[in-house]
Design a protein around this nucleic acid. Structure first.
Length: 454
RNA sequence: CUCCCGUUCGUCUAGCCUGGUCUAGGACACAUGGUUUUCAUCCAUGCAACAGGGGUUCGAAUCCCCUACGGGAGGCCA
């Protein structure tokens, strides 16, 4: 195992969104690529908004995506505890070091970090107040993705809040030191904060880890980075909609990273092998659910029928399409027909619901289209006796019988198809018609046609 | 307002470091056609981009500068 140690340090908010998931994924990928250690650290210093449920959402999301951590909650490790709320004594020790070095002071009941440099007061337009500023020497951040970035911090910041709880910048740096983190891979939204962190590392006399600030994911529509409230932002949503974890993982790995060749569908082993900093982009990327859906469809089609059925069942159940007394063989036969047409599992009930329910909606547009060109009732009346009697009720036999009749009527056989499909499914599209008739069975098919004609 | 980061088809991106092979490649989406029925599958074709301006150079998507635009940060949130 290499000495690479990376961490994903989320704050449990009750959501696990795409941006966080991608940061977690990139950290995990790099750890696996380098043969290092992936640490999961829970940054729960904000007492107001941390609950067990929130933590659970996070851990479930991580597990669903297959991002296993080597150290952290439920995993243990030599650098615990992995909840910041349990690390108070460590923060006390580190705070004392800063205090002894003369780098802290108290103000308004909070403990502040003291920057080094000439002090002056100035009116700050953004804060709309007179504030004390410090002329510091700019710190240099050697970013693995952005190169050399220089930035000067100009205001002291809070280390410990009035209520005694340690604040983000402080605990983040302390833990990265204490947990011997070698690479900090995080969103670019933290780049501006990094000068604070570097000041802290310097005050502790510790060499900072290597930083890699990855581009942000922008919302699909409108401006700004994606946040919890945006459409499609939550990982849990993809899980419940029946997206495949492998597809989601593959898609988000491609947001801001690429394997430098033209492949897009990559299995996780390949991604791990190819993943590295030079492949990471600088520019932000916009989330595109259609592309995710397309990739998901590819993964879906590759599934064997057992896995496909396993995943589809709960969604069909939820949609009320299937229920008690279900014929398993029939379900399997139907899904075998529908799988090649499926783009996502959450629309499967619309795609194939009529196989199970006699009360299916008739798509008016399709009906009008068919009625405009032909007389569907008449065509179906012609065909009904054939379907009543053809033996066996199998695709091939049905096809031959229909062809025979069509020839006698001097019609192409497919003249009957649209009306037939529409009568038994209410739709204009779907699986191949002949196998579909076979699977539905004589009874169901003829009953539906009779009802349609009547 | 200040500081930081970025900018190739509508979107994700290759190419940029190491200037010529780029009439800028792929994918999603879209459009058309095909797969002798349908279709959200499959195949083919098409559409479509180097943000703008100035340099440097024989030559710039590639190097430099400026402008514009986009994003982020500036919390006793993380």
């Amino acid at each position: 195992m290499s000495d690479v140690r990376v961490r994903f340090a989320p704050s449990p908010t009750g959501f696990f969104h795409i941006g966080s998931a991608r940061t977690a994924l990139f950290n995990w990928l790099y750890a696996r690529h380098a043969g290092g250690t992936f640490v999961l650290r829970i940054e729960d210093t904000d007492r107001a908004r941390n609950t067990d449920e929130s933590l659970q959402v996070l851990l479930d999301g991580m597990r669903w995506l297959g991002l296993d951590w080597d150290e952290g909650p439920d995993a243990g490790g030599d650098y615990g505890p992995y909840f910041q709320s349990q690390r108070q004594s460590i923060y006390d020790t580190y705070l004392k070091r800063l205090h002894d070095a003369g780098r802290t002071y108290e103000k308004d009941g909070a403990i502040w970090f003291k920057l080094e440099g000439e002090r002056y007061t100035a009116y700050d337009k953004f804060l709309e107040a007179e504030v004390e500023k410090v002329k510091t020497k700019p710190v240099v951040i050697d970013d693995l993705i952005r190169g050399r970035v220089e930035r000067a911090e100009e205001r002291d910041f809070v280390l410990v809040r009035k209520d005694g709880s340690p604040a983000f910048h402080f605990v983040n740096v302390v833990d990265d030191i204490a947990m011997r983190i070698t690479h900090v891979i995080r969103g670019e939204d933290h780049l501006s904060n990094t000068s604070k962190h570097v000041e802290l590392f310097k005050a502790f006399g510790v060499e900072p880890p290597k930083f890699a600030h990855i581009p942000l994911i922008l919302k699909e529509a409108g401006s700004g980075k994606m946040s919890k409230r945006d459409k499609g932002a939550l990982i849990e949503e993809y899980e419940s909609r029946g997206f495949l974890a492998a597809a989601v993982r593959n898609y988000i790995s491609l947001l801001g990273w690429n394997p430098k060749d033209e492949r897009e569908k990559l299995d996780i082993g390949e991604i791990i092998e190819l993943f590295d900093f030079p492949g990471i982009n600088k520019g932000n990327s916009r989330f595109d659910e259609k592309k995710l859906a397309a990739l998901n469809a590819e993964y879906l089609r590759e599934l064997n029928i057992e896995s496909f059925t396993f995943l589809a069942r709960p969604l069909l159940n939820e949609a009320g399409v299937i229920g008690e007394g279900l014929d398993e063989d029939y379900l399997q036969a139907v899904l075998t027909l529908c799988q090649p047409k499926a783009r996502s599992l959450d629309t499967l009930s619309e795609l194939c619901g009529y196989f199970f329910r006699d009360a299916y909606a008739m798509d008016e547009k399709t009906g009008a289209k068919i009625a405009k060109k032909t007389d569907p009732e008449a065509l179906l009346a012609e065909v009904l006796p054939i379907l009543d009697t053809v033996e066996p009720f199998k695709a091939d036999a049905i096809k031959s019988a229909l062809e025979l009749h069509a020839a006698a009527e001097d019609q192409p056989v497919f003249a009957y198809f649209p009306a037939l499909r529409y009568a038994i499914s209410g739709q204009g599209g779907g699986p191949d018609l002949l196998p579909m008739l076979e699977v539905m069975g004589r009874e169901r098919v003829t009953a539906r046609i009779r009802k349609f004609i009547a």
